[in-house]
Design a protein around this nucleic acid. Sequence first.
DNA 1: TTGCACTTTCGCAATATTGCGAATAGACTG
DNA 2: CAGTCTATTCGCAATATTGCGAAAGTGCAA
Lengths: 106, 106
Amino acid sequence: MAKTLKPARDAVEILYRRFYEGKPARLKNLEEARANEEISCKIHELRAAAALTQTQLARLIGTTASVICRLEDADYEGHSLAMLRRIAGALNQRVEIRFIPIRRSA
Amino acid sequence: MAKTLKPARDAVEILYRRFYEGKPARLKNLEEARANEEISCKIHELRAAAALTQTQLARLIGTTASVICRLEDADYEGHSLAMLRRIAGALNQRVEIRFIPIRRSA
DNA sequence: TTGCACTTTCGCAATATTGCGAATAGACTG
DNA sequence: CAGTCTATTCGCAATATTGCGAAAGTGCAA
């Protein structure tokens, strides 16, 4: 109440301050969630770009539509390299993995 | 016997022709093996660059040295995104994943 | 040679991911 | 409306990855 913070710009910023700012563990979870979401999104984009249905892609990699659906769910946390490679292979892509340094802002 | 191939340059090329050329399944396995080897190598390099022993890195990510050793084994096929992220996180890196189109040479 | 730190290999239990069918929901068309 | 195609959710078995200790293999220095 006291410290007179300058007013937050919007709801997102308010929520960020309340739940994440200065809480490394939560920030880490947030980053993981974003990373998973990104992968799900890429899989969906790749499939869409190839103009395939979930069932068609599933058959290409030897599994079922429900599995593809699970992979494209942004909340899915079980992404594996093996599955990414299977999908990439079916769509004539390869998976590149890079480790990128993070500059920590103290 | 007949077709009069021009002589192969070296043993590697001979072996390549005998076992891989024109055999997509084997080429795919070869590519996977190379990808796994590359990841193992990167993990090792990252750890070396951070000047950590396997035991030290293991403690950073909450596991044991034997696990790290397994990951750095070039023949290991079980690399997972989860583990790569744990290692990256401990070493202040992030894992970037990209799908890259393969130009198929017919 | 011994000691010491580090690495590697092995086996098995614990956990996580995948396989897959069934049921449901949504969108679109005739 | 029914019919069709697509997407989503659920549960559980099958497979894959991880956890972890014990034992043995390296390399180096005293």
